[in-house]
């Protein structure tokens, strides 16, 4: 029934174009591989905003913090104690706190730009940006692991000791795949997929609701209103997901770094 209604709606007039992944490619200047796209501009904006905020809120740091300093200290303390110290351990977590904190706040601000009205573009819904962030994590945890024990022992440490000999090659292959392929792939795709899917969902409900209200009969106008209610609910949900994904990315980065630091995997 509803398919018929929507289908007939689509058949007459222009028809509703469902949003596709092509909506996310928005070059502002130039075209092709060197195009300056909307997410690039959003990313530059976010970096400027974060730098300004962090400098402004900590320049006159007081023992009794003001509002801005309280927010910054809360976020910093959350990453320093809640992620870095708990995951990496209290011995050498401090040198990774700057990396984790800047990663968290960069992802968080860029994700939140997905729902903040004048910008409304989650930077991480273009796969290049999560790949760049993942590359930093990837190089970091391999580098510290290899620097700590050397190349040969690093690969030897991948297999836990005390296994029967015939199973060692299998485990080694699995661990190599995990360390070099699965981990960076899932790290980048998780952030990308969540931001992409969430934004596509919002796009679908908002443009679909608008189309139904403008072009539909009375029943579809009501459904269009329902679609806007869903868009509102999903926006709230999206804000939750955006916080969660920034946290998860940082948490996993810390977990991988911690894995390279311990003696036995």
């Amino acid at each position: 029934m509803s398919l018929n209604v929507l289908g007939s709606l689509a058949a007459d007039g222009g028809g509703f174009q469902t949003p596709t992944s092509a909506e996310f490619y928005q070059p502002l200047w130039f075209d092709g591989p060197f195009a300056i796209t909307r997410p690039a501009v959003v990313l530059i904006l976010s970096v400027g905003l974060i730098a300004w905020w962090l400098i402004a809120s900590t320049r006159r740091a007081a023992v009794v913090p003001g509002k801005g300093q309280w927010v910054t200290e809360g976020l910093y303390g959350f990453i320093r104690n809640g992620v870095a110290r708990d995951i990496i351990g209290s011995k050498d977590f401090l040198r990774f706190v700057p990396l984790l904190f800047s990663m968290f706040i960069l992802i968080l601000v860029n994700n939140l730009f997905g729902v903040i009205p004048p910008i409304q573009y989650p930077t991480m819904s273009r796969i290049g940006f999560p790949i760049a962030l993942t590359l930093v994590v990837y190089i970091t945890y391999h580098y510290i692991g290899i620097k700590r024990v050397g190349v040969g022992p690093y690969f030897k440490h991948l297999v836990p000791s005390g296994l029967p000999g015939w199973i060692v090659p299998v485990i080694f292959a699995l661990e190599v795949i995990t360390f070099f392929i699965t981990r960076p792939l899932t790290l980048a795709l998780r952030l990308f997929g969540n931001m992409f899917a969430g934004h596509l969902l919002l796009l679908l409900f908002i443009t679909g609701g608008q189309y139904m209200i403008v072009n539909g009969g009375i029943g579809l106008k009501i459904a269009g209103g329902g679609s806007y209610v869903m868009a509102f609910v999903l926006t709230i949900f999206e804000i939750l997901i955006e916080f969660l994904q920034a946290y998860i990315f940082t948490l996993l980065a810390a977990t991988y770094i911690a894995g390279s630091l311990v003696d036995e995997h």
């Binding site: 795709l189 998780r190 969660l244 948490l251």
Partner: peptide, 22 residues
Amino acid sequence: MLQSIAILGFALAEALAIFGLV
């Protein structure tokens, strides 16, 4: 302590759905 473990497990389990979506 349980919260970070739960969220870690959630993130790992979610990866398959994200693969499917992509």
